[in-house]
């Protein structure tokens, strides 16, 4: 009985401390990330380099809502190609990837005729939406689907050329099915090294069909 009394107080303190740490960790993680299977994963492309002198970005607006943070950025693209930006919001050391990216004035016929384009980024928050303080908005990369998202013969030739450098021994065929109210494209792997699974090869082919330019732009923002 005496021993229990002796250790009761330290155990209670330790338990309380552990509970506080766990609660804090849960809140931080849950706030930054919904934790569902819908949590977006980063787009992974073939790095074709970095913008010299970094990309010009103008933060136009930032708004904090109950369920998300929205940021409006105008970005000077490296070419007139339809590049897509990919950004993350870092809060309390946790990176929240953008779940939505929309071109502003998307249907303006001139929107893609200029390299300076404006986008609305959405970063999802958990249901409590109790985000405040400071965060870092980071433009991670610009990515471009070769063939505007179609695995055309030209795209396949480019992917094969990249494959020969990165994973010799991998080859594939592309099968396209269309005219059924839409369509789809699948990849038939015709050869691969023994240490690579079909999924690894598919991920690699997928990655090599996307150009990626990494950027260093980031800015500190205030979240209210």
């Amino acid at each position: 009985m005496k021993k229990i009394r002796k250790y009761f107080r330290p155990m209670l303190v330790a338990l309380t401390v552990i509970t506080i740490i766990e609660t804090a960790a849960f809140l931080v993680l849950n706030r930054a990330n919904a934790g569902s299977q819908n949590t977006p994963q980063e787009i992974d492309g073939y790095n074709i380099g970095q913008v010299s002198g970094d990309v010009q970005v103008d933060l136009k607006d930032i708004q904090t809502h109950a369920s998300d943070v929205q940021a409006e950025l105008c970005i000077e693209m490296p070419t007139l190609d339809p590049w897509n930006p990919y950004a993350t919001l870092i809060v309390d050391g946790v990176a929240i990837p953008n779940s939505e990216v929309a071109v502003l004035d998307a249907k303006d016929p001139k929107v893609m005729q200029t390299a300076n384009r404006c986008y609305l980024f959405t970063f999802p928050l958990s249901s409590d939406g109790s985000i405040s303080g400071k965060g870092v908005l980071k433009l991670d990369k610009l990515w471009l689907e070769l063939g505007r998202g179609q695995l055309t013969d030209a795209v396949i030739a480019e992917v094969r050329a990249r494959l020969s450098k990165m994973a010799p021994g991998v080859d594939f065929e592309m099968v396209s099915v269309s005219g059924k109210g839409g369509g789809g494209v699948l990849i038939n792997i015709t050869s691969k090294p023994e240490n690579m699974s079909d999924e690894d090869v598919e991920r690699l082919i997928q990655r090599l069909s996307i150009d990626e330019i990494s950027t260093n732009w980031q800015t500190e923002i205030s979240l209210k």
Binding site: P40, P97, S99, E100, V101, A102, V103, G149
Partner: peptide
């Protein structure tokens, strides 16, 4: 790409 939405 006018709008992109990501999930998983």
């Amino acid at each position: 790409d006018a709008v992109i939405h990501y999930a998983s």
